[in-house]
């Protein structure tokens, strides 16, 4: 870290244009380091030579047209992609320095550290309380008092406590879609993760619920590293610090969100963000 800072200081001084401050100046430690990742669904080569260092306490957005591999990539980060039959991978993904494809790395352990929020709100057909307490319970917490505290803290963390505190025992399905999605975020927070993966979390929500989730993401990045797949480029521009542009299974460009949206290095990125395709 110190070394890194020193080097970036020098680079800053050497920079020709001091107006555009280099991103490396504030570089945070890497949480997820993807190295030469390839993934095949049967014979379909879905991810090609992905290299992506994702840093702590940042929001990293992954954008790209449908079928570009962005959802596949985020599901690879917690190995959910393996639920699909016939998936093969090569290369490595280092999470906090350990390769998640290592035979000794248990997926259960990985997923306890890495929470996930899905495209469609997917609460369990249980009460709000039981939804939030699900994670802690499977990890062995039985004490009612501790569970109560976790539930409250998680719901507060997902900015939905005030809306549901009087009806924790009602079925989560009685809530609106936007509330369900925040319940799902609260449920992910309840396992006290290090990273939160979000796979198009607002694609099924109305604009007001979307805004609430976006605000929530901004608050959450204080304590968590967030990787968010989105179809919505404005959303990526609004909430993320870094943006990776995927196309046909490759990372075309990965940089500061501002840089990607204002001054993309690759013509294809520019075409995509300016709406010429996708």
């Amino acid at each position: 870290m110190v070394q890194l800072m020193n080097r970036t200081d020098k680079e800053t001084q050497a920079a020709v244009s001091p107006v555009e401050a280099p991103i490396r100046e504030t570089a945070k430690p890497v949480v997820y380091d993807t190295k030469q990742l390839n993934l095949w669904y049967g014979s379909h080569h879905a991810l090609k030579n992905i290299d992506l260092p994702i840093r702590e306490n940042e929001v990293t957005a992954i954008i790209g047209p449908s079928g570009c591999g962005k959802s596949t990539y985020i599901k690879t980060l917690n190995r959910m992609v393996e639920l699909v039959d016939g998936v093969r991978t090569s290369g490595e993904i280092l999470y906090r320095g350990r390769n998640i494809f290592d035979a000794k790395y248990s997926v259960e352990e990985l997923r306890t550290r890495v929470g996930m929020v899905f495209q469609k709100p997917n609460p369990f057909p249980k009460s709000i309380y039981d939804n939030i307490a699900y994670g802690p319970r499977i990890h062995g917490i039985k004490n009612k008092k501790i569970l109560d505290e976790i539930v409250e803290q998680s719901l507060r963390g997902a900015a939905i406590w005030d809306e549901v505190k009087d009806r924790l025992s009602t079925n989560a399905y009685s809530l609106s879609g936007g509330q369900q999605q925040r319940i799902c975020i609260a449920r992910a927070l309840a396992i006290e993760p290090d990273v939160i993966l979000m796979d198009e979390p607002t694609s099924a929500l109305d604009p007001i619920s979307t805004l609430k989730v976006e605000e929530l993401v901004q608050e959450l990045k204080e304590n968590y590293s967030i990787i968010i797949v989105t179809h919505n480029m404005q959303q990526a521009a609004r909430i993320s610090d870094k943006t990776a542009f995927f196309l046909n299974g490759e990372v075309i460009e990965f940089d500061d969100t501002n840089k990607i949206f204002q001054n993309p290095a690759d013509q294809r990125t520019e075409d995509y963000i300016s709406g010429r395709f996708g």
Binding site: M80, V107, E108, R111, F124, I138, A188
Partner: peptide
């Protein structure tokens, strides 16, 4: 999707 939710939290 409810199975995925469970696996996603580290359930066996």
């Amino acid at each position: 999707h409810v199975r995925e939710a469970s696996y996603g939290m580290g359930a066996t």
